[in-house]
Design a protein around this nucleic acid. Structure first.
Lengths: 233, 233
DNA sequence: CCAAAAGTGTTGTGTATACACCCATGT
DNA sequence: ACATGGGTGTATACACAACACTTTTGG
């Protein structure tokens, strides 16, 4: 048994960037802090890593605590460890990237944590280096959604192609040709026609599809070449 | 000033996966440990994060200590923090991914650390979760090299197109058509003809190119669509 | 009947692939 | 001269972008 020098120990935090989509805008789930430090300011949902949990477990715990959801899309994004990033103490923060379906999250729970869904472009200034974390996450979302079919994680179980298109237009902030988009999506064979129509429409009712989960898992790792260009590592 | 509970502190290590290419094989720079724990077994080069350094600085320090090199391609890959990953103590390890030009590394220094360049496919079993880290890194290399021109980081300042091709064939373990490869590379306008030829060849001498660093930096983030498919996150 | 949104078709352009052919070099 | 490897050309298929047209629905 070897002893490591205890002076090297640091705090390990986990911060979660939680994206949602309401049909028009991309949103972030942010917390208005009601305890020190930085009480009253906005931040990402986070917490310290517990001694008895793995990193992914910790992220799952934090997301569940805020939204009530368990089986969501959640992946590790980066680690931030600048020596002065948290003025309270040397802290290394593992940043997680989560995509959830807003309407499945527990409103009650969200409110009780003093959190809200905030439109991405209208987000407030965040504490510490959380602003940079969000910028990293937006880059990552654009990068990843261009190559892998993760967009579905932000929509409900059934969705229409026009809804999906609005999502991609929100992610990349560009208009997309309706006809080419539709054809490309249908050719992925990831969509299953439910036979139902979107009854909420006031004009022609769009077809409701659901995701073919088997094909989704098979095809997830294959490149998609979906959006022609994006940015960032 | 707020106090965080000190019991939550953990060790933060940095482990570096260092890739090289010798013209035929992809290689890893691995260390045969000469101190406990796991003395005599192979591992990645690593160390603890110092209290007065940022994470990227720590990775730079560790790579420099082993190779003597400073301005190399080095990016954060993942964080591993399974609660039992290091039996000595709860440790979170930040894994870095580095690409270096083998011939520029300091042989003396490498030897003095009990390290060697080992052909990727013939690597020994590594300690802790280092095997998984290497697998992650190979995936990442394939993924990234398919989209961004990082291959150049593994070749010398001047290189020939056939050399570059051998590198990509090693990365993806597939044969590539010489003519299409050449055309695709030349069309990137990342290559500058040095006017020199590879004098080591025994047949027709290939043209030596060097990287257009300005264009490289401009184009780095644009997708490349280089290899048709790869795998992984 | 008309406006607005959904669905389907066509066509041109560019990019990737699969080939064939010529050139330079050392033995 | 010939074997080996480097360099250039071309035809085909396929994917993508830019378009026009038809259908459904509520008012």
């Amino acid at each position: 048994m070897v002893k490591y020098p205890a002076a090297l120990k640091v705090f390990v935090a986990i911060d979660c960037i939680i994206f949602g989509f309401d049909g028009r805008d991309l949103k972030l789930l942010l917390v208005k802090r009601n305890l020190e430090p930085q009480k009253g300011n906005w931040s990402l949902m986070g917490g310290f890593l517990y001694p008895d949990e793995d990193l992914d477990q910790g992220a799952g715990r934090i997301v569940k605590e805020l939204t009530g959801l368990t089986n969501i899309y959640c992946e590790q994004l980066t680690v931030k460890g600048d020596k002065n990033r948290d003025p309270g103490a040397r802290t290394v923060s593992v940043v997680y990237f989560a995509l959830i379906k807003i309407e499945e999250s527990d409103e009650e729970l969200v409110r009780s944590h003093n959190a809200s869904w905030i439109v991405l472009e209208r987000r407030p200034d965040l504490i510490f280096d959380h602003n940079q974390m969000v910028l990293d996450a937006i880059d990552h979302l654009r990068y990843k959604a261009a190559l892998h079919p993760i967009g579905f994680e932000l929509l409900s179980e059934t969705f229409t192609i026009p809804q999906l298109q609005k999502l991609y237009e929100a992610i990349y902030d560009v208009p997309i040709d309706r006809r080419n988009f539709s054809r490309k999506l249908l050719s992925t064979s990831l969509l299953i026609d439910t036979g139902m129509k979107n009854i909420h429409s006031t004009t022609k009712k769009a077809t409701l599809y659901r995701l073919d989960k088997v094909r989704y898992n098979e095809k997830f790792h294959a490149f998609w070449n979906f959006m022609a260009d994006s940015s960032k590592s």
